[in-house]
Amino acid sequence: MRRLRWYWGALVLVSVALLVGLFVFFGSESKTGQPQPRQGPPGTGPLTVVAMGDSTASGEGAGQYTPATNGQGGDWCHRSPNAFVEKIAVPGITAHVNLACSGAPAGQVALGGVKQWTEGSQAQQLAALVKDHRVAAVVIAVGANDDPKFSNQVTDCFKAWFSPGGPPCSEALKQSWQSKVDAMVPKVTAAVSDVKKVLAQAGYVPADYQLILQSYAAPIGPDVPEELRSLNGCPFRVEDLRWISQTGIGVLSSGIKTAAQRTGARFLDLAKAGVKHEACSGGANPATEWFTRLTLQLADLGQADRAGHALQESFHPNAAGHTAIANCLTEFMASREGNASCLAGADGKLHPAPEVVAR
């Protein structure tokens, strides 16, 4: 009988030890038996949404640039308090940080030594930020300043308007645009991968944050009133504007979507976001437009260090455009999964439409 009691006592002790071991190995569980989910991003500090990339994200064209990025010490990143990242309204997110820089190539978003207007790697800036911020979302807009060199193409189209006897700028672009976009894709892919690497090194797992790669909107459409196809507004040929808005922007968006697929980022397509709100589309009433017209800062022409940037704001989303994009982004982030396209709804505002609907 004594030996039997010893046997049962030993069995109880072994069972207790096993239960303790399982508790330590698997952690505590909820009452339903399911593991407790992580409570958001790791670390300390406010929940934060971060914008990275080029002028589309920095706020170029939206005005009121921070002094430090408005030419001070050679920094022309043009970050604006009117940029879309400042207007994203997601419950729980209380901090908005803009690391984007006007004109930035993918290499400056990535880790490494590439600089833009005196500023170093945006990914390295993000690495410093996560020390005292909990990053809930990163929105990236980049690629147009790499092989496509979109601003250079706009300049070439501007020159074509001055030479009515010569070929339209779209004639050459039709031959080279796809190859330029194809060459851009691996650079954007590398930049987004570096952003993921920085967050992983800080202890983040993919479920901790949203990673969004967005494309670009066509700043000008083909239906510009004739009186505004001039230096008073949008000096471009109709055939060039038609190709840019109907073909060029779409090809660029497809390339960026490929980079999103390769990195596991969500993709938000802005290719049709500006329809009926492009620069000069409002005619005599520019208040309906979401993009700047040809913009010349006359005061800058008298200063040698600023004269070269007097036209920098031209053909970028203005403050109203950034508000519209922020509305779409806010709803897109709330959905938390899938890709979408920003399209105007019956209320006139931009909303994220599932890709199948957008097509």
Rank of each mutant, 00 (worst) to 15 (best):
A190G: 02
A191N: 00
A191V: 03
A191H: 03
A191T: 06
V192P: 04
V192R: 00
S193G: 14
S193F: 04
D194F: 01
D194R: 00
D194T: 03
D194K: 00
V195G: 07
K196N: 12
K197I: 07
V198L: 02
V198G: 10
V198M: 02
V198Y: 05
L199Y: 06
L199H: 01
L199I: 13
A200S: 14
A200L: 08
A200R: 11
A200C: 02
Q201I: 01
A202I: 12
A202G: 12
A202N: 04
G203W: 06
G203F: 07
G203Y: 06
Y204K: 09
V205T: 15
V205S: 14
P206L: 07
A207W: 02
A207M: 02
A207N: 12
A207F: 01
A207H: 13
A207D: 15
D208K: 04
Y209W: 13
Y209N: 14
Y209Q: 08
Q210G: 09
Q210D: 14
Q210L: 14
Q210A: 14
Q210P: 12
L211N: 03
L213I: 09
L213R: 06
L213M: 09
L213N: 00
L213H: 11
Q214S: 13
Q214A: 13
S215E: 03
S215P: 05
S215V: 09
S215W: 07
S215H: 00
Y216V: 03
Y216L: 13
Y216E: 10
A217C: 04
A217H: 00
A217W: 08
A218C: 08
A218N: 15
A218M: 11
A218W: 08
A218G: 14
A218E: 03
P219F: 00
P219W: 02
P219M: 02
P219R: 00
I220L: 15
I220G: 11
I220C: 09
I220S: 14
I220N: 12
G221I: 07
P222V: 05
P222K: 05
P222I: 09
P222L: 10
D223V: 01
D223R: 07
D223G: 06
V224D: 12
V224N: 11
V224S: 11
V224P: 00
V224F: 00
P225Y: 08
